[in-house]
Amino acid sequence: MTTNDPGQSPLPDPVEGMVTDTPTGEETPFDPAIGPETVAELRSLADRYPEARSALLPMLHLVQSVQGRVTSEGIATCAEILGLSDAEVSAVATFYTMYKRKPMGTHHVGVCTNTLCAIMGGDEIFDRLCGHLDIGSDETSEDGQITLERVECNAACDFAPVMMVNWEFFDQQTPESAIEVVDRLRAGEPVQATRGARITSWREAERVLAGFEDGLVDEGPAAVGPSLAGLAIARERGWTAPSYETQAGTGRAGESKAQAEAEADTRRAESETVAEESPADTKGGKGDD
């Protein structure tokens, strides 16, 4: 059985397509170039981890925030800082959907079209946005403002249908509300996420993801609407969890492993259960279980 699906090559070639920026192979000028300040920030990210390579994902986010995509210059810089080859860094960059190869618009607009949102209206919102902006998925509007993308479930299904702008939540959208958001963004008008801060830009968002705070944490609510659905009912009816007792009574019954195994109900758990054997192995059988 072989697959001839261009979208999912079983062994994606990590290097091809990542070292050059145009089909003809010529390097487009990167704007701006990665300067000494960025290099210092990249190094500071590497310093946050016991092993520097762990910083690669954040570093690539930072590259995107500076250059608007993952450039070959960015890859080379990360590789040099981490002592990796360019190919190793490329292999990582191509694996994750948030890293973009093509130049991005000022704003990234993602419409959730996973099942729940799609059915609740996400498909229609996406189609209407495509029509309105005259682009398809992974394309950028002519004015360079909006890059549109279908996104997977963004962990906000209770707010379906959901749209993300620069990875901020725009909950319970309609085609009309989504178009309005996009038009305001293009006009440079202020736009506030429904659960989040005012919209900055995709690049600025990438900088926060890389690991640098932007001072907008206190904007937006703690929780609204669906997040409070159960709590509101509990408040109304006077329902609470039992109150805390004075101190934990620590009955030390403890469960047997067999019991635990029987209770854990998926293969995920099964593989975790077997973990218990291993510590004993490495301890040279110290565990008497």
């Binding site: 944490v217 206190d218 703690a222 929780a223 997040s227 409070l228 159960g230 709590l231 509101a232 009912i233 509990a234 408040r235 009816r237 329902w239 609470t240 969890a241 039992p242």
Partner: peptide, 21 residues
């Protein structure tokens, strides 16, 4: 019997600026 809903993790979500220390 406990109540039907038992907010523990969600109990402070309606607090003003709940995310702050």
């Amino acid at each position: 019997m406990t109540d039907t809903l038992t907010p523990v993790l969600t109990d402070n979500w309606d607090e003003d600026r709940a995310w702050t220390l």
